[in-house]
């Protein structure tokens, strides 16, 4: 059996050698898609316009600011990194169409930081980057499923998962708010189901849970949420939703004089974005928040200082917030992945 196998192997090699002869007559295979002698092209889809774009539309500018700095300092082994950005307005079918354009027309090497669980899943299903061998680097969603290398072999998570965040919140509640009545506002989709799973693991018992369907959030809805939290006499209210939900809730609560102990999930917890919607800064005071990266105002941190200096020069007048920091950090990690991929990076390497 073993001998037979070896013989098969030998002949197969012989065939390959024969075939190889013919192939070698053709000029060497072109470099990887999206990679030339002078450049590397990456593509990004995210909401740049429309109601869902608030805050997120600063991410491409942040990533480009870092890539521009990188390119001015030699790029990746001499190759300049360019980023093609397409607006999907947070609509899954549009994300599919725009991602197809990035892969087929713009011929990008990899997708960088596509945003939104539904959109990334729609792209995984209908564009199928895995089948095409296209890397999806550092998706901008904390949905735990995208870390599954078997199901999404070319997709890489970067944000800590919503489950992790909920578990850490749960730990904090146990240590600091034991015996208090806890309320939870969450998005009624995979984002929220991840959160519920995390809180369950952490053993948090809620006095009240209020789901909202994605897209239904607004001031009118927030008034209804507050009624529910008040009725349940919640002491601590966790806002585990997107920025527009957090803002609607905090803005409406300020108007109604409703002041529980707030706890904000990182997705909807960027202060700059919340304040942009007209929520007074004071409303946020003493709320509990969570972040994987340093505080955006912490200029003693070498990264924050470095990134904010680059950003201030590249996009003058734009506030350095969590979206910017995460956008630049993602670009920074992508640069390292490209550098680590060797002198002639390929999708596979």
């Amino acid at each position: 059996m073993k001998a037979l196998q070896r013989r098969t192997l030998l002949t197969a090699t012989a065939v390959l050698a024969t075939v190889g002869l013919a192939v070698s007559a053709i000029p060497a295979q072109a470099a990887e898609v999206g990679v030339t002698a002078t450049g590397i092209k990456l593509g990004m889809t995210l909401p740049m316009t429309g109601t869902a774009s608030l805050g997120y539309n600063k991410i491409p500018g942040a990533a480009k600011a870092y890539f521009d700095y990188l390119n001015a300092n030699g790029g990746i082994n001499g190759r300049k990194v360019t980023l093609v950005v397409k607006d999907d307005r947070y609509v899954p079918t549009e994300a599919v169409a725009k991602t197809n354009e990035l892969i087929l027309k713009d011929k990008v090497m990899a997708l960088l930081a596509p945003l939104g669980t539904a959109n990334v899943k729609a792209v995984a299903t209908s564009v199928n980057p895995a089948r095409r061998g296209v890397p999806v680097l550092f998706v901008n969603t904390g949905f735990s499923g995208f870390a599954d290398a078997k199901k999404y072999p070319t997709t890489y998570a970067v944000l800590p998962s919503y489950i992790m965040e909920a578990k850490i919140m749960g730990q904090y509640i146990k240590e600091n708010f034991a015996g208090k009545k806890i309320g939870l506002l969450y998005q009624d989709d995979d984002f929220g189901s991840d959160a519920l799973a995390g809180f369950k693991t952490a053993g948090v018992n809620f006095a009240v849970k209020v789901p909202y369907a994605s897209g239904s959030q607004g001031a009118a809805a927030a008034a209804g949420w507050i009624t529910k939290f008040k009725a349940a006499e919640a002491d601590v209210v966790i806002l585990f939703g997107v920025s527009s939900a957090t803002s609607a809730m905090l803005g409406t609560a300020a108007q109604l004089g409703y002041k529980p102990q707030w706890m904000l999930g990182s997705v909807g917890g960027d202060a700059t974005t919340i304040k942009l919607t007209g929520v007074p800064a004071g409303v946020l005071y003493n709320a509990i928040g969570f972040s994987p990266v340093p505080a955006t105002t912490d200029m003693t941190d070498e990264y924050v200082k470095f990134f904010s200096d680059i950003y201030a020069k590249a996009v003058p007048g734009s506030a350095f917030d969590l979206n910017v920091l995460l956008g630049m950090n993602t670009a920074f990690m992508a640069a390292q992945a490209l550098k680590a991929a060797g002198p002639n990076p390929t999708r596979k390497s």
Binding site: A147, P160, M164, A271, A281, N286, P294
Partner: peptide
């Protein structure tokens, strides 16, 4: 400020958080 968990079998990213409070200015 937290480690990432990439490996051949897992594409998990960062694995944690720090806890903060929002200041009167609204910053965390």
């Amino acid at each position: 400020l937290v480690p990432a968990g990439y490996s051949k079998t897992s594409h998990v990213g960062l694995t944690g958080y720090w806890v903060g409070k929002y200041a009167p200015t609204g910053d965390l």
